[in-house]
């Protein structure tokens, strides 16, 4: 009887440990998701800001740096027809080192309206998104598109800054 009682206790203890571990993992995942969502929400920050009620000292301004965001531009992209995994060269230049992450959103014009074909994760300075997966394959032809580049300031809770739209021609063959 004592052995059975001990087994039940052991099982109960193990179950408790597993539950605590699962709760901890869920909590950490939630924190990470919240951080990324906050970075992308853009509700509390923008590229042009007025902080009223402050003394006016530059020390009070903790939001944004004065250095500009460097963006590499292109006019054309080439994709193979019928493929979703394609090569691209979406670069965050080294000049943004220590200052800005970039995200890239490729919007293609089909039937007169723009639809999102690809959205990247945060790309660190000096790195690039090279192999990307499109939301759907494209047929052979030429497409008008816009590459929307959104920078996030590294130092301040990944706050979004002013951004850029790069018109691009996608050539699919």
């Amino acid at each position: 009887m004592d052995v059975i009682h001990e087994d039940k206790k052991s099982v109960k203890r193990k179950r408790t440990v597993v539950i605590i571990l699962l709760m901890l993992i869920c909590f950490l995942l939630g924190v990470m998701a919240e951080c990324f969502h906050a970075a992308k929400s853009g509700q509390e920050h923008g590229g042009v800001e007025f902080h009223t009620g402050l003394g006016g000292s530059k020390q009070d301004d903790v939001s944004q740096p004065t250095k500009g965001v460097t963006i590499s531009g292109m006019t054309q992209m080439y994709f193979p027809a019928g493929e979703t995994k394609v090569s691209a060269k979406l670069v965050n230049p080294e000049e943004n080192s220590g200052l800005y992450y970039l995200t890239f959103e490729l919007r293609v014009k089909t039937d007169g309206a723009y639809e999102t074909l690809y959205t990247s994760d945060l790309v660190a300075p000096g790195e690039q998104a090279e192999q990307i997966t499109l939301s759907h394959p494209l047929e052979k032809g030429e497409y008008s598109a816009v590459l929307h580049i959104q920078p996030y300031h590294i130092g301040n809770e990944l706050s979004p800054t002013n951004n850029a739209d790069i018109p691009i021609k996608i050539i699919v063959g």
Partner: peptide, 8 residues
């Protein structure tokens, strides 16, 4: 192109 990131 280098654009102004922010204006405060």
């Amino acid at each position: 192109v280098t654009i102004p990131a922010s204006v405060t």
